[in-house]
Amino acid sequence: MSFTKTTEQDSHYNDLEKMSVNEIISHMNSEDKTVPIAVEKALPLVEILIENVVKKMKDGGRLFYIGAGTSGRLGILDASECPPTFGVPNDLVIGLIAGGDSAIRKAVENAEDSTSQGWMDLKAHNISEKDVVIGVAASGTTPYVVSTIKRCNEEKIITGCITCNKNSPLSIAAQFPIEVVVGPEFLTGSSRMKAGTAQKLVLNMITTTTMIRLGRVKDNKMVDMQLSNNKLVDRGVKMIMNELNVTEEEASQLLEKHQSVRKSISYGRKQ
């Protein structure tokens, strides 16, 4: 099967340093507009992977993202947003990055080239057949990710991936691959741009849809969100006011008592 790294091909734009600011951002914007179209083409694959994630989570499993560099950071970002947004435990969705937590802020030399560390990182979280592991790699060739997905397959763990090259080693290794082919970057090889945007869009779909299917959303509201700051408390109060048709003071009292939008609404309905 032929494999071409479109993420590494030359930009369609030359002499970037000679462009005005307006020209640069206009061309970047034109390229960015192509990303949702590429994601749309991959939706059937996204759906299949999500169905498998939901099934495993309903049976007590967890979701792991594993990546390096920008891809690893995006996985960690998505995972870290799940507890505050949906009120789930911190270890339900876990993001792992080559080089460990220090690599979130600063690149760790040669970390992504390891073919054994990824599995060791998963073992530290007691990975099992109940879980799902999704490799995130724009290139689809990162050794840290590809080797881990292959090992997960051997251990009968469901695997998926998000990559931006067609027929990559990662796509071939993963049981449920998602390929979002966005083409060459505006800045040649800078896959933090269109490829990163594409990955973020797909990650949003995976966790948000999964949490909706797990009952963590009511109507279109985040009723299980953590009330970690004043903005979120105010949002919670407004949700309760709208759902129960009560005053702001009554909603605030309910929220203060139950410390949960869902529980406040449930209690209010019983009164």
Score class of each variant (00 low, 15 high):
residue 236 G to F: 04
residue 32 D to W: 04
residue 236 G to M: 01
residue 81 E to L: 10
residue 196 G to T: 08
residue 224 D to V: 11
residue 151 R to P: 07
residue 114 S to F: 06
residue 103 A to D: 03
residue 221 K to V: 12
residue 2 S to T: 13
residue 84 P to N: 12
residue 176 F to Q: 07
residue 224 D to Q: 14
residue 257 K to Q: 05
residue 15 D to M: 10
residue 62 R to T: 05
residue 42 A to Y: 06
residue 208 T to Q: 04
residue 202 V to F: 00
residue 115 T to G: 11
residue 233 V to D: 02
residue 254 L to C: 04
residue 257 K to N: 03
residue 82 C to Q: 07
residue 61 G to I: 11
residue 163 T to Q: 06
residue 91 D to M: 10
residue 186 F to V: 15
residue 230 N to Q: 14
residue 26 S to M: 07
residue 66 I to K: 08
residue 6 T to G: 08
residue 209 T to D: 07
residue 60 G to S: 01
residue 70 T to F: 00
residue 263 K to D: 15
residue 109 E to Y: 06
residue 132 V to H: 04
residue 82 C to R: 09
residue 63 L to H: 04
residue 236 G to K: 04
residue 110 N to D: 13
residue 174 A to Q: 08
residue 76 I to E: 03
residue 99 G to P: 08
residue 270 K to G: 11
residue 61 G to R: 07
residue 21 V to Y: 14
residue 35 V to N: 03
residue 130 K to Q: 04
residue 85 T to S: 06
residue 224 D to K: 15
residue 14 N to H: 14
residue 146 V to P: 09
residue 45 L to Y: 14
residue 63 L to Y: 03
residue 69 G to V: 00
residue 128 S to M: 04
residue 124 A to M: 13
residue 144 Y to A: 01
residue 69 G to F: 01
residue 229 N to F: 01
residue 184 P to N: 00
residue 40 E to G: 11
residue 207 T to L: 13
residue 100 G to I: 01
residue 191 S to A: 10
residue 11 S to V: 03
residue 9 Q to G: 06
residue 40 E to K: 15
residue 201 L to H: 03
residue 232 L to P: 04
residue 36 P to A: 01
residue 224 D to L: 14
residue 187 L to C: 12
residue 47 E to N: 13
residue 2 S to P: 13
residue 218 K to F: 13
residue 96 L to V: 08
residue 87 G to L: 09
residue 94 I to V: 15
residue 27 H to E: 15
residue 93 V to K: 09
residue 21 V to T: 15
residue 136 V to E: 02
residue 32 D to E: 05
residue 117 Q to V: 14
residue 37 I to G: 10
residue 32 D to I: 02
residue 224 D to C: 15
residue 47 E to V: 11
residue 27 H to M: 13
residue 226 Q to Y: 14
residue 97 I to V: 10
residue 209 T to H: 10
residue 173 A to E: 10
residue 220 N to H: 13
residue 235 R to A: 00
residue 29 N to R: 14
residue 265 I to P: 00
residue 22 N to F: 12
residue 238 K to L: 15
residue 137 A to M: 01
residue 56 K to L: 09
residue 188 T to N: 05
residue 40 E to D: 08
residue 118 G to K: 00
residue 164 C to R: 09
residue 115 T to S: 14
residue 79 A to G: 00
residue 43 L to R: 09
residue 91 D to Y: 13
residue 39 V to A: 05
residue 232 L to K: 06
residue 161 C to D: 06
residue 269 R to A: 10
residue 157 I to Q: 05
residue 243 E to S: 15
residue 188 T to M: 05
residue 176 F to K: 11
residue 77 L to Y: 08
residue 181 V to A: 08
residue 195 A to Y: 12
residue 102 S to D: 13
residue 161 C to L: 02
residue 179 E to K: 08
residue 7 T to M: 02
residue 241 M to V: 11
residue 116 S to C: 12
residue 99 G to A: 06
residue 91 D to A: 08
residue 221 K to E: 14
residue 232 L to N: 00
residue 229 N to T: 06
residue 33 K to F: 07
residue 4 T to V: 12
residue 238 K to N: 13
residue 146 V to K: 07
residue 155 E to N: 15
residue 57 M to Q: 02
residue 247 T to Q: 05
residue 211 M to L: 03
residue 65 Y to M: 05
residue 154 E to P: 00
residue 84 P to V: 12
residue 71 S to H: 04
residue 193 M to Y: 07
residue 194 K to T: 03
residue 210 T to H: 09
residue 80 S to N: 03
residue 17 E to M: 11
residue 223 V to L: 02
residue 5 K to N: 11
residue 28 M to D: 08
residue 32 D to Y: 02
